[in-house]
Simulated scan of single mutants.
Amino acid sequence: MRTVRRAFLLPAAGVLAVALVACQGPGPAPSPGPASGSPFPESTAPATAAAPTTAQAPPPLSAEAQAQLDQQLVAAAKANNAQLVAGLIGRGGGVNAKDSLQDSAFLYAGAEGYNEVLQLTLAAGADVASTNRYGGTALIPASEHGHVETVKILIAAGVPVNHVNNLGWTALQEAILLNDGGPRQQEVVRLLLAAGADPDIRDPQGRTALQNAGRLGFTEIAALIQGHG
């Protein structure tokens, strides 16, 4: 009786094992390999680098076209149109080219206190020692007109402070002789003296800057010159 019971149980255990395997289902599918013909897996394929781009210089112009462009630049500077000035410089306009009045974009911007235009011309290589029809640098009329910020820009750019124009005047002399001696002129005089302006350079009448300030009644400017010593 004991032998019969064992024979009956063994087949039952085998059936149970088969049932357990069937319930577990199939195993995970294998990961797909790289695409046929590709030496890299998809996730590690190197990216293609973009080709570098370089700014193109403006094409060379004929002499006539260049002269026309230069005159347009001077006209844009005289109109204080900084956006147009920037565009014309970008096309190759010359910041040192002059019109019939011997004004360049740089010289005119400096004389009139057009500081944005002035900075554009300086960045484009303006000749800071260039002169106008009176033989003066941009600093001389800027000082005469009391353009304080312009005077700062021109001094920082290296415009000579003791240049004498065809009238025999320096920037310091014009700042005194051709304006009202007010606060702006006082500040211009202070800036010029700090930059090395020589108050002992005489005008065509033989007067120094101090003598001219005294005879015009500009006591504050006279005090600045005396204090500079």
Rank of each mutant, 00 (worst) to 15 (best):
F8H: 08
E42C: 00
H163K: 15
E220Y: 02
D180W: 12
E64D: 14
N162V: 08
A142D: 11
T137K: 14
A109L: 14
G90Q: 08
A50D: 13
T121E: 06
I153A: 01
P59L: 13
I225V: 00
G181P: 02
V18E: 12
A67V: 01
P46F: 06
D180K: 14
P30M: 04
A12D: 02
A67I: 02
F8W: 11
G113I: 09
D99A: 05
A49R: 14
L20A: 15
G196M: 05
L120A: 00
K78A: 06
L216K: 09
G217Y: 04
P11M: 10
K152R: 15
A51R: 12
A19Y: 10
I89A: 08
V15R: 08
T48E: 11
A213D: 02
A55I: 15
V148E: 03
A123W: 09
A29H: 08
Q205W: 09
D203V: 03
F106T: 05
S130C: 10
A129E: 13
A171M: 07
A194I: 03
S43A: 15
A22K: 07
K98Q: 14
G125N: 11
G25L: 11
H147P: 04
G25P: 06
A19V: 12
N80V: 06
T48L: 10
N96W: 09
S62L: 01
W169V: 09
S143T: 04
V74D: 12
Q56H: 07
P60I: 00
A197Q: 03
L69P: 01
F218C: 00
R91M: 03
T208M: 07
Q173M: 07
H147E: 07
R215F: 03
A157E: 10
L210N: 02
V117N: 02
T170A: 12
L84H: 04
F40N: 02
T208A: 04
P141T: 14
N179S: 14
G33F: 12
